[in-house]
């Protein structure tokens, strides 16, 4: 578990920029992740939202959960809209039309908006070097439209378009590694974050905002509705995802890897999957095979970290 002073939580900023009254499902850890992102970013922030859960829960007219300027255009293009906002502010500040000050520009989308339909837009915005932050809230399927599989859905997970059928059991492909794709863009900062580790989470969001140039954050976001997990278990599942190696926490700063909340001994993956209805059709062999692959990926991650240190 994240080592933090038990009273440190009181040091978090009190201000919320995603307000109560939003319409996320009971126990939505994605809404929590978004709340924490904006707690870390603070008031001087402008957000561009993709279509998805975090858009519809926060903006049904005539109410808004947002306390900061916020713009939704479409599903696939929030990164591009964000890059436009960043460019617009840059031009207007340079021309003296608006006061010069530090404004964080954040674009965000779900895993569908990031890994599938919007991958090109995210790639373009990151490649062009805009001083902005992109956050993928990854709940591992298209939850807003009714739990369809995305390329970020984990192997074997049952969704409404990868159901646990009699002959084909759930998702047939391994989760697409979007953070690694972003690392390949040679951007200054890429990190994975998980609201079960709020201090690591907030630190990374702040770093992403402060760093000059594009930053990409990939946020683990438990979805009780889509995963068939109990709403009160969202934070525990987040910890289990890290402890089983299913969602390693790491950051890549100017190409240098470092791993957080390092796992010395993996918790059995079964502890994680058994709490989720989407995995209930899995056999022990399938779980073990996935665990092996996760361990291999984790080992590779540690090697990258080691190589980063050797490069210093």
């Amino acid at each position: 578990m994240e080592k933090f002073n038990v009273f440190a939580s009181r040091l978090l900023p009190k201000e919320d920029y995603v307000c109560s009254g939003h319409r996320a499902c009971q126990g939505c850890a994605e809404a929590l992740a978004m709340r924490l992102v904006h707690k870390a970013l603070g008031r001087n922030t402008i957000a561009a939202s993709a279509t998805g859960c975090m858009e519809i829960i926060s903006s049904p007219y005539p109410e808004t959960a947002w306390n900061i300027p916020w713009l939704h255009v479409a599903f696939e293009n929030s990164a591009s809209v964000g890059s436009g906002i960043e460019s617009g502010l840059k031009a207007l500040m340079r021309k003296g039309r608006i006061p010069k000050r530090k404004i964080n520009v954040i674009a965000y989308g779900g895993d569908g908006a990031t890994a599938d339909i919007g991958l090109q837009w995210v790639s373009g915005a990151m490649e062009r070097g805009h001083n902005m932050l992109y956050v993928c809230y990854d709940n591992e399927a298209y939850m807003n439209t009714g739990i369809q599989r995305s390329s970020a859905t984990p192997l074997h997970a049952a969704t409404t378009t990868s159901p646990a059928g009699k002959t084909i059991g759930g998702q047939q492909t391994w989760k697409k590694n979007v953070p690694e794709i972003m690392v390949s863009h040679n951007i200054p900062y890429v990190a994975t974050i998980n609201p079960s580790y709020p201090f690591d989470f907030m630190r990374k969001v702040k770093k992403a905002a402060e760093i000059d140039g594009p930053a990409y954050l990939h946020a683990y976001s438990c979805c009780p509705t889509g995963w068939g997990s109990r709403p009160e278990l969202g934070i525990q599942l987040g910890r289990l995802a890290v402890e089983t190696g299913a969602f390693p926490l790491y950051e890549v700063e100017y190409g240098k890897y470092s791993v957080q909340e390092k796992v010395e001994e993996f918790r059995p993956l079964k502890d994680y999957v058994k709490l989720q209805r989407r995995f209930r059709h899995l056999t022990d062999e399938q779980i073990n095979a996935s665990q092996e692959r996760l361990k291999q990926e984790y080992a590779l991650l540690l090697k990258k970290e080691q190589m980063s240190k050797e490069g210093d």
Binding site: I46, L71, V73, A74, N77, S80, I85, G88, W121, R128
Partner: peptide, 23 residues
Amino acid sequence: EFIPVESEHSAMSCCCGTAAAGA
């Protein structure tokens, strides 16, 4: 700011961002 985007869809998306920012 000349923003050489990666598609026309992105061009119009980006224009939405720049115009919404007041440019």
